[in-house]
Design a protein around this nucleic acid. Structure first.
Lengths: 112, 112
DNA sequence: GCGATCGTCAACCAGATGGTTGAATATGGG
DNA sequence: CCCATATTCAACCATCTGGTTGACGATCGC
C-alpha cells in the first residue's frame, strides 16, 4: 500500500474508525475515553487509532500518562479533491453531513 | 461490512480500482478494454469491477458478448458529503483534481 | 456448426486485517 | 514505595483480500 490515498480510504472504510473521527470532531480525547463507548477491547481501539494516525487523519500527543488524540482534517483534502472530480460539484451541504452523522451514530457500530 | 460507506471507501482504497474509475471518466468501456493497460489477469480485473459494481460506483450492462462498464458518480455523493463535514475545504478545485489524476496515472499502479 | 473472443467461476495461495488475551511499560497519587 | 491508571506490545486466531491458473458458458463471424 504505497499511495497515500490507499491509506486514507482504507482507514475510512471501517465504521469504528469513522465513528472515532466523528467523536474527535467534538474535541480532542484520550485513548481510554475514545474506547469507552465501544464494546471491543482497549487494545483494538489502540490499533484503530494507530491506523488513523498512520493515514494522517489524526495526530497523537502524549502528555504524562495520557495520549491525546486530535483530528487532522487536512488529511482528507487530497481524498476529497480526488472524489469531487467524479461528480457534479454541488455546494458543500453541512445539513446533509449532520444527517449522515446521526445515521452513523444511531446505527449499530459493532454488532447488533 | 454492512454500512454502504464501508463498501464505498473500501472500493476506493485500491489503486487499481481508482485507476479504473479514472479511465471510466473518459467513456464507458468493455471489461477487456478496461483490463488492457494493467499487467494483471483479466479475472483479477473482473473481480475489481465486481467490487466497484457492488459499491455502486459503476454499473455493468451486457450487450451481446460485451459487458459495458459505466461510471456511476452519484455513489460518491454520500461519501463526499461525509468527508466534507470534517473540514472547511476550499471550493472544489478542478485543477487540483487534474494534478491528482496525473499523479495516479504516472505512478506505477501494479508493481514497480 | 466451428473456432475465436468475451467474461466469469472455482479452487487455490500468500499476506493483510480486525479482533482477542495476557504480559509489559510508563506515569501519577498518596 | 506501592498501587492504580493509561497505553502498548506480542502472540495468536479467523476471516477478508488480491492475485493466480484452468475450466467453463455465451456469443459473434464466417
Amino acid at each position: 500500500m504505497t499511495h497515500p490515498l490507499d491509506a486514507t480510504f482504507a482507514a475510512l472504510a471501517d465504521p469504528t474508525r469513522r465513528m472515532i473521527l466523528s467523536m474527535l470532531l467534538e474535541d480532542d480525547m484520550a485513548v481510554t475515553d475514545v474506547a469507552a463507548p465501544f464494546e471491543m477491547s482497549l487494545a483494538a481501539i489502540s490499533k484503530h487509532l494507530h491506523v488513523l494516525a498512520e493515514a494522517g487523519l489524526i495526530s497523537q500527543e502524549k502528555r504524562g500518562r495520557v495520549k491525546w488524540c486530535k483530528l487532522e482534517p487536512d488529511a482528507l483534502r487530497e481524498a476529497s479533491v480526488w472524489m469531487q472530480g467524479f461528480g457534479q460539484f454541488e455546494p458543500v451541504n453541512l445539513d446533509a453531513f449532520e444527517r449522515f452523522l446521526v445515521m452513523e451514530l444511531t446505527s449499530p457500530d459493532t454488532d447488533p
